[in-house]
Design a protein around this nucleic acid. Sequence first.
DNA 1: GGGCAATCTTGCCAATGACAAGATTGTGCT
DNA 2: AGCACAATCTTGTCATTGGCAAGATTGCCC
Lengths: 195, 195
Amino acid sequence: MTRYAAAVTPPSYHHGDLRRTILAAAVGAIAETGPAGWSLRELARRAGVSHAAPAHHFGDKTGLLTAVAAEGYTLFAEALEGAGTDLHDVGLAYVRFAVDHRGYFEVMFRPDLHRADDPELTAARDRADGVLMRGVRDVRDFAPGGPGDERTAAIAAWSIVHGFADLWLSGALPADLGGDPVAAARPVIGLLFTR
Amino acid sequence: MTRYAAAVTPPSYHHGDLRRTILAAAVGAIAETGPAGWSLRELARRAGVSHAAPAHHFGDKTGLLTAVAAEGYTLFAEALEGAGTDLHDVGLAYVRFAVDHRGYFEVMFRPDLHRADDPELTAARDRADGVLMRGVRDVRDFAPGGPGDERTAAIAAWSIVHGFADLWLSGALPADLGGDPVAAARPVIGLLFTR
DNA sequence: GGGCAATCTTGCCAATGACAAGATTGTGCT
DNA sequence: AGCACAATCTTGTCATTGGCAAGATTGCCC
C-alpha cells in the first residue's frame, strides 16, 4: 500500500518501463556530473522505485554502465553511418556525437567502468569500428604507400577527432574557440586532409 | 601503544612522509584499477596509518586527486620541456608520458575528479600548456595563413597526440600495433606534418 | 482460473567518506 | 631546561552506498 514519490504515471507495483527509465537517468546523470557523480539509489529514487529495483535489470552498477556503453555504441554507429562517406563529415559527426551524447561517450571508452567483454557491447562496438575503418578506406589520398599506410591513416583520423572531442569535453581547449565544437573542429580536422 | 602494520620504518606516531606515501599509492592505484577502483581507507591501510590520517594532508578524496593532478602537470611540463623543440618529438613525449604515468594522466584531464581551480594545479597546468603552444609556434610549416591558423595547428597537434594516447590507454586501438605505443604513434603523428 | 516467471519491495550487512574530539609528538620561544 | 603551541595521527561515530537474501505483487500463459 505504499505510494510512489515520482508518479507521473499512476502508482503500480510494476513500473512498466523501468529499464529504460533508469538507463536514461544514468546517461543524464553521467553527462551532468560524470560517471562517479551519482548513485544507483539516487536513480532509483528519481524513478520512484525502491533502491533494489535497478538490480533486477542490470545486476550491479557495472552492469548498468555496460548497458549504457552498449546502447552508446549503437547510437554511435548510427550517427557515423548517417554522416555519409566523406571522412571529413564522419569526423565531424564523431565530435558531434561526443558532445551531444556525452553521457554515453564518457563511458564507452572507459573499460574500467564496464564489462568490455559483454556480447551485446562488443557487437555494437565492432559495428561502430567498421564504419570508422570503412570511411577511411574510401579516401584514396591516404594510401600512398600501401595497405600499411591505410591503417596508419585510419588511426590518425581516429586520433585527431577523438582527441579533439576529449579535450573539448574536459574543458582543456581555449575558451575563445566559441560555443560550437563542431564548427571549431572543422579547420582542425581539415589540417589532416589538406596537403 | 598501538603498533603499525606496514612498518618498513620503525613504528612511530608520526609517519614522517605520509603525504608523499599516500600520493604515490594513489597514483599507483589509479594506474592499476582506474580513478574509482580504490578507496582512501585502503590507501591508509597500505601505508600503515589510520583511516583518517590522509584527511589531514588532503582534506577529502577530491583534495587527494587534485594533488595528483597538480603533481602530474608538473611532471608533464618537465617531460615536454625535456623533449626538445621539435614538435614531433614533443608529441611523442606526450604519448610516452600518458603511458608511463598513467596514474597521473587519467586524472589530469578529468575536471570532475579534482578541483580545477586549485592555485597550485592551475599554475602547473599553465606551465604545461605553455610548452605545448611554444612547441607549435616553432614550426613555421603550420602557419600558412596567419596567426589564426597557428592556433588551429596547435590544437590539431594537441588533438592527435592526446587522442592517440587516450585510445591507446583505453585499449580501443587494434592489438597488432605492437607493444610500444611511442613507436606506433610515430608514423601516425607524422601524417599531420608531412604534406 | 491456476501455476509460474518476471518484477519490485523490504530488510540487512560490510565498506566507504566525512567529520568531531582526543592523543601524541615535534618545534620554537623564553 | 621547560613550556606553550601547532602539526600530525588516532579513535569513534554517522549517513550513504552497493550488493545480497527473502518475500510480496503482478502479468502471462496454458
